[in-house]
Design a protein around this nucleic acid. Sequence first.
DNA 1: GAATTTTTTTGATCTAAATCAACAATTGCC
DNA 2: GGCAATTGTTGATTTAGATCAAAAAAATTC
Lengths: 248, 248
Amino acid sequence: MLAPIKIRDASLKQIRHACSNCSLRELCLPVGLSRDEMKQVDQLVTQGRPIRRGEYLYRAGQRFHSIYAVRLGFFKTSVISEDGREQVTGFHMNGELMGLDAISTTRHTCDAVALEDGEICELPFDDFESLARRIPALQHHLYRMMSREIVRDHGVMLLLGNMKAEERIAAFLLNLSERFEQRGYSHSSFHLRMTREEIGSYLGLKLETVSRTLSRFQEQGLVKVQNRLINLTDEAGLRQLVSSCVRD
Amino acid sequence: MLAPIKIRDASLKQIRHACSNCSLRELCLPVGLSRDEMKQVDQLVTQGRPIRRGEYLYRAGQRFHSIYAVRLGFFKTSVISEDGREQVTGFHMNGELMGLDAISTTRHTCDAVALEDGEICELPFDDFESLARRIPALQHHLYRMMSREIVRDHGVMLLLGNMKAEERIAAFLLNLSERFEQRGYSHSSFHLRMTREEIGSYLGLKLETVSRTLSRFQEQGLVKVQNRLINLTDEAGLRQLVSSCVRD
DNA sequence: GAATTTTTTTGATCTAAATCAACAATTGCC
DNA sequence: GGCAATTGTTGATTTAGATCAAAAAAATTC
């Protein structure tokens, strides 16, 4: 969830635990599976496939067979409008699922491309579904993951519909920070895998605005920017930016 | 799907058929259930409850128990940011589900309110889930409905991130038109159930901009506007607006 | 059905972000 | 390691839509 809708997500820590050290981590499955059930899921989850930067997992219009779990790396998904405008719909890192949008039409509705070398897990959806019928926790888990995607999208809608450039970028940085931290990386220092243009496309801004805003943040001592390396030097300040503007 | 991502939805007509005349229409379940399965679903789907205009189905933060199927009427869902800004996340009419966002956290993440008197069906989610395990078509159907919501949200993201006011409003009118038509109402003449402000909140515009744009459309002969009654007098023109601006 | 409140329209002005432009820095490639 | 291509920065200018304001029209309430 990118924009600050106030809902506590108590389940995060739990999930992180469950994901830490088993072969199911790429599914982020909560604990509670029997040894036998685990084995069945394992069989479904094919060995992670290495993916090179720039490689597409799928493109809009292609037939849908599998959902994809990021095991490693950084991906972007985007939709292209009739007249060729790109809207980045998300950036995805390990433990996150892609392709859920395709279930409804049995065709992919967006493109998914790797922004750095990585590894992904392909989950044939038919198999997943029938296995889910036998393993309630698995069924429930997918409902939860899809629901989470909807919540995330609503957050982006709030951001796009209501926030101004500074707020959007602050929210974006804080969101990345949080997600890196959840994965055991530094929350205050991280590398952007995407271009300014891609950030802009996600946030509904032009790349110049993204660049300028980052520069301004730097002047204000909120962040330190060296190319794509970001240092959050005043997280509280950023947080304030997100939730304070346009107060009435 | 609001913005024109080019994916054909072949299943719509089929669904409409299935929904036409059975007690499951509020779930929009595709055919293929046995008589016995139907009966089980029927038991789950409580008798539709009448809802008055202004009544809330749920509010953000409340515990999640059920998803809601609109049987009749017109609803809006919206998220409120920390500092009180409202983002309308959707308008919902009969056959559509609300509350899917709540599955992930077991708390509702948005408000749902009736914009006119109507009738809704409450579906206790736990029961739904266990029934879904026994009825594959039901399980699959919920995955599809959730996926569809994700696709729709991506369309809104495209609209908010890339389109200008005129395009947004044209897309919005065409989307309503299509949905009314799918339900057997006129596609060219319909009544807006929401205020200009609510339209604006959904589309990321101020109410003045919505009003002005509608007036301009009227001058251009694209629509006829009488209060909330809308007459699409040049659908082709509207369609062109949506897909032609900012061509490069 | 008169009075109050809410919603809508329209005009004037302002402003945040887009656009246009030029150059600098990085990255990737032969 | 040098060269081309991509990506990023910064400045000047424009503009779409926001904001402010006021009045008109509808809807609601008593």
